[in-house]
């Protein structure tokens, strides 16, 4: 889009409450917001990037820890959560679509569905964390897996516990924990656009916030899609 368009449109639109004074058109405002959101997502990718790097370094140096420790993660629950998050991304995309077409009620419905999925995800996460807590499968300093490790050894599915095995759970808790914080933040953001949707703030010209929150939610989903195989599906 050429810059000239902005000003042509600006003349036609005049001043509207949903258009901030320093933008000349809704389109310019939308594109600024969108680029800003993409840049923010980039910072998020790099934030997690540090942890992915740590994961790569430790996995390369101590593969035996990862092979041994991942058996304590519940693949079924992990897969369930993956499915739940992918579904939530789908409902989020539908909510954005509806917002663009001015279908407020439907948009609110899909946003609510997304929120429900997020709650389910966190619920499953809670069950998983609780289990680890009880088994003593925690980060290095709190790592006391005596019983679980023993039971695994008896069933013959595992080798001897490697030295410093807790480092796996350090990284596991750091990454999934940071991800869970992002899910919580995402829920806050979805709640915010849900309220604004119900109050009728959005229309065909102004639906940016729903779109941006949608982008954020997809990123949160995407990160989980990497986390799942990296922790649960190791061979």
């Amino acid at each position: 889009m050429s810059n000239a368009d902005h000003h042509l449109v600006a003349g036609a639109e005049g001043h509207q409450p949903s258009l901030a004074h320093h933008f000349s058109s809704h389109r310019q405002q939308y594109e600024a917001g969108k680029l800003g959101m993409w840049l923010f997502l980039l910072t998020e990718v790099l934030l997690f990037g540090g942890l992915f790097c740590a994961y790569a370094v430790f996995r390369a140096n101590r593969p035996e820890i990862f092979i041994w420790a991942h058996q304590f993660l519940d693949k079924q629950l992990g897969a369930l959560n993956t499915a739940v998050l992918i579904t939530s991304s789908f409902t989020m995309a539908l909510a954005v679509r509806c917002a663009q077409w001015d279908q407020r009620r439907l948009s609110a419905f899909f946003l609510t569905l997304t929120l429900v999925c997020a709650c389910v995800f966190l619920g499953v996460k809670y069950v998983e964390y609780k289990h680890k807590w009880e088994e003593g499968l925690l980060w290095v300093r709190q790592f006391q897996p005596a019983e679980a490790a023993a039971s695994l050894d008896e069933s013959g599915t595992s080798d001897q516990q490697p030295r410093h095995a807790g480092i796996f759970f350090s990284i596991y808790f750091a990454m999934t924990g940071l991800h869970a914080v992002h899910v919580l933040a995402g829920m806050g953001a979805i709640g915010w656009v849900l309220v604004r949707t119900l109050r009728g703030h959005f229309n065909r010209q102004y639906f940016g916030p729903v779109d941006y929150v949608g982008l954020y939610w997809h990123l949160v989903d995407l990160i989980w899609i990497y986390l799942f195989p990296l922790f649960y599906l190791i061979h």
Partner: peptide, 27 residues
């Protein structure tokens, strides 16, 4: 953001003993 995650890990390391930067814990 990379500084952010680094300092976050440092803080958690001090509070919880995450061990990622601690050679006595395998870090």
């Amino acid at each position: 953001p990379v500084l952010g995650i680094t300092l976050l890990l440092l803080a958690i390391e001090r509070i919880l003993g995450l061990g990622i930067f601690d050679s006595t814990l395998g870090g």
